[in-house]
Design a protein around this nucleic acid. Sequence first.
DNA 1: AATGCGTTCCCGCGTTTGCGGGATTGGCGT
DNA 2: ACGCCAATCCCGCAAACGCGGGAACGCATT
Lengths: 214, 214
Amino acid sequence: MTEPRIEVWLIEDNATFRRAVSRALGQTAGFACTGDFGSAEQALAALKTQPIPQAILLDVGLPGMSGLEVIPRLRERLPAVAVIVLTVFEDDDKIFRAICGGAAGYLLKTSPIDEIAHSIREALAGGAPMNARIARRVLDMFARLAPPRGDYGLTAREQEIMEAMVQGKTKKEIAAVLDLSFHTVDSHLRNIYRKLEVNTRTGAVAKALKEKLV
Amino acid sequence: MTEPRIEVWLIEDNATFRRAVSRALGQTAGFACTGDFGSAEQALAALKTQPIPQAILLDVGLPGMSGLEVIPRLRERLPAVAVIVLTVFEDDDKIFRAICGGAAGYLLKTSPIDEIAHSIREALAGGAPMNARIARRVLDMFARLAPPRGDYGLTAREQEIMEAMVQGKTKKEIAAVLDLSFHTVDSHLRNIYRKLEVNTRTGAVAKALKEKLV
DNA sequence: AATGCGTTCCCGCGTTTGCGGGATTGGCGT
DNA sequence: ACGCCAATCCCGCAAACGCGGGAACGCATT
């Protein structure tokens, strides 16, 4: 069985490293490096003239437009292409921005070529290949970003009032949309304040949003 | 070289599957299953009498206390132990809650034993072993949870006012901490409202928190 | 010199809020 | 049957807020 070659693009400003990866990938069974570019701009320009690849290996430390900036643009034009970040950086902010931009994987340049090849297959199969340390960082960020999910025992009605409050509505407006008396809304509001241990709507909204009560 | 055995606990209500994994792990070089439990409660009780393991394989669909609930408790008592979820479920909510609870990995029960063994080593080495599909789900959730990071051109002073506002402070209090006149704060507030296109502090706080302006 | 903008300060007025008091109904559990 | 509590409604008042005006200064750009 002869499976079709996986066509890969490489965006990397270091010519030496770029050629090394390009050649190594070309010699790996089932892969072909059909394009290598020294900058994001060159790659974007090539989209208009060349056939698109299945996967793109991307450095983040590029001259001009950074790798992080280009991810969303690539994803926009080529939603089906797996963009895999391949870099030396492993700080939270870069990882975070890469993922939020839509990267399908995040590898380190120290990875051997067969791991890179395996990762490309994994990404195309719907996976998310990541260096072990990176993966841990992602989980940690996730957990930190996560909701403490405080439970203050708000009733259904109070939740409803909270939602309206978060939308910036006044008591009068809330009363109108929920078809209640102004005084009733006021009453619920006081109960919410007591439960959340705040005494202004601003504090209540901040607490609700921070702790994902809404 | 004789590396020390890795001691693993198993929390899984299906006795057949539990024994199968336990035996397979026991026969794998470098591993020892030193405890297997049919419920979270049994495992928590065993913490008091038995020596603690290096890793715990945990099912989420347990009778009584669910696997998701028990993760934070385990992490609390045993911060150094790698808790790896091993389950058939792969819905976003369960994955999300497991990670937020502090799980070090998330595997599917379809994984062969050598992959499980490898994952345990990976977790103990600071990695985050995940099934490929699960990893992709995590990245997708991450990107969705991500901040749109709107930029409304708030000045440094206005940012400062926003932060104080998010803390639930009144205009008078903000004026006090920033050593400004009440009227100045009022002025800044109006400019913030105009830039964010809101007309209440509630709306401003909601927008600021949702779009990570603070 | 002129323009724009951020920052600071001030007045007044009508609206909204927070909170102190209440009251009544209906469901739920022991 | 009794208490508990969520949910609904009401009054009044001091405080805070939103917004309409305004003015002044510094600093950078044009």
